[in-house]
Simulated assay, not measured.
Amino acid sequence: MSAPALDARAVGEAISRLRRQKGLSQEILSGLSDIGRTHLSAIERGERKPTLETFYRICCALDIRMSDAMREIEEML
């Protein structure tokens, strides 16, 4: 029996939705969170999962708590 895995697509969709709600482009958010725009784009498309550190920096740049972002993700699962 394998352990459940976090759906990368749900993570990306939640981050994308939160970014758009704040009125930020990927370019701006990637700069604020100090990650590459292509990396952020891959996360939003569900092609990559952010590390905990990257997720934290994205949340800080969006001015939201990690727990609130996780709640958004859990609602999509």
Rank of each mutant, 00 (worst) to 15 (best):
K22A: 15
K22G: 05
K22Y: 05
K22W: 04
G23H: 10
G23D: 06
G23L: 10
G23N: 07
L24V: 04
S25K: 09
S25G: 13
S25D: 03
Q26Y: 04
Q26C: 00
E27M: 09
E27L: 13
E27I: 08
E27A: 12
I28E: 14
I28Q: 12
I28M: 12
I28P: 00
I28D: 09
L29H: 06
S30G: 03
G31A: 14
G31I: 04
G31W: 01
L32S: 11
L32E: 11
S33A: 15
S33D: 05
D34T: 11
D34H: 14
D34F: 12
I35N: 03
I35P: 04
I35F: 04
I35E: 00
I35A: 07
R37N: 05
R37S: 06
R37E: 12
H39M: 09
L40P: 04
L40V: 07
S41E: 00
S41R: 08
S41T: 05
A42N: 09
I43M: 03
I43A: 06
I43W: 02
E44A: 06
E44Y: 04
R45H: 11
R45K: 12
R45Q: 11
G46D: 02
G46F: 02
G46Y: 04
E47R: 10
E47K: 10
R48A: 10
R48M: 07
K49E: 11
K49W: 02
P50K: 07
P50G: 10
P50C: 09
T51M: 02
T51S: 15
L52V: 14
L52S: 14
L52W: 05
L52T: 14
E53V: 14
E53G: 12
E53W: 10
T54M: 02
T54H: 01
T54C: 11
F55M: 12
F55R: 02
Y56K: 05
Y56E: 08
Y56Q: 08
R57N: 14
R57K: 15
R57S: 13
I58L: 15
I58Q: 02
I58R: 01
I58Y: 07
I58A: 09
C59Q: 02
C60G: 07
C60F: 11
C60M: 12
C60V: 15
A61V: 11
A61N: 11
A61C: 09
L62K: 02
L62P: 06
L62C: 08
D63I: 01
D63T: 10
D63R: 13
R65L: 10
M66V: 12
M66E: 12
M66A: 15
M66P: 12
M66F: 00
S67M: 03
S67E: 11
D68T: 10
D68P: 04
A69T: 06
A69L: 05
M70L: 15
R71Y: 07
E72V: 09
E72W: 01
I73V: 15
I73R: 01
I73G: 05
E74Q: 13
E74N: 10
E74K: 09
